[in-house]
Simulated assay, not measured.
Amino acid sequence: MTRPAAIISSATLVLVAIIVAVSNPSLVGAASEAASGDSSEADNSLVRSHSPSLGPDDAPVTIVEFFDPACEACRAFYPLTKKILNTYPDQVRLVVRYTPFHGEVSETAIRVLEAARLQGVFAPVLEALLARQNQWAAHGRFDEAAILEIANQAGLDSAKAQEQLDSPEVQAVFEQDKEDVKANQIRQTPTFFINGEQLDPFGMQELVDAVQREVEELSEAGEDS
């Protein structure tokens, strides 16, 4: 390439970059992030930095559950996921993604859970809401007062929660999780991913077996290294 041609080509590239930056600045940010390699494991469509989790943050095995607090199947799976966490206290963590498939009742319960996360009482409030799910969400019945009462008994500051339920911070989490539900083509709750791989076939024993395999494989890999 001749020198004048090289100068023209460089000028053209600069002009294109300026046009892209003006028309869609998010593309520039995405490109910069990709170039720098700054794509945190805790900030993608499966695991966001805001996502509530149970278990150690540095656990080598991550279960992601797309979860609806009004879902009876989610309630049925909770004792199992809790047992898995107790079985592998150092190796496994559970990340919860909000999935409001049951309409207003789900949305209200999710907002209460998010307020509980902000207050540092997510786990006890989650357990209480699931244990008494039939009091606020059975057969399509929606009792917002019961949700707040149960959460308050589990440690939620109700007065503070009233300010948090419709706050921009909680709304942003709610909207982001809905986008991630679509991005991952989630069609039922619960849906599980183990270290990024969707659980398929789906089932309770299948979840137990998949987690056990992942723990054992990582343990063997660590011994060999």
Rank of each mutant, 00 (worst) to 15 (best):
R75S: 08
V61S: 01
F193N: 03
K83S: 15
R3A: 08
Y78W: 07
L129Y: 08
I194N: 00
L113T: 09
V170E: 11
G37E: 01
L80G: 08
G120S: 12
L46Y: 02
D200M: 08
E179V: 13
F122S: 05
T189D: 05
R97L: 06
V105Q: 02
E163W: 04
A159P: 04
Q119W: 06
A11F: 05
V20A: 14
P79N: 04
I19G: 00
Q135E: 15
A221C: 04
I63C: 06
P60H: 07
V208A: 06
G37R: 03
V22S: 03
L46W: 06
D180P: 01
Y98F: 05
A42E: 13
A138L: 15
D38V: 13
S219Y: 12
S49H: 09
F192E: 01
V112S: 04
P52I: 14
C71I: 15
I194Y: 04
A109V: 07
T191I: 00
L218D: 12
P56I: 08
A21T: 10
L207G: 01
P69S: 10
P89Q: 02
F202W: 11
F101A: 11
I18W: 13
I19S: 00
V181D: 01
S49C: 01
P60K: 09
G37T: 03
M1N: 06
T108H: 13
L130A: 02
L148K: 06
L85M: 05
L15C: 14
A128Q: 08
T189V: 08
A161S: 10
S219D: 15
F122P: 00
M204Q: 09
V125I: 07
Y88Q: 10
D209G: 01
A70S: 13
D200I: 09
D200P: 05
F66E: 00
E217R: 13
A145S: 08
S36E: 12
L94N: 02
E107F: 04
G120P: 06
L207Y: 01
E107L: 15
S26W: 13
G55C: 09
P79S: 06
A73Y: 09
S10Q: 12
L130P: 02
M204G: 10
E107H: 10
R213C: 02
P124R: 11
P168F: 11
I63Q: 07
V28G: 09
D209F: 13
D57P: 00
F67I: 11
E114G: 06
C74F: 08
A17P: 03
F77P: 01
R97E: 06
E216Y: 02
S49E: 07
D38M: 14
F66H: 10
S40D: 15
A159H: 01
L46M: 07
Q198A: 10
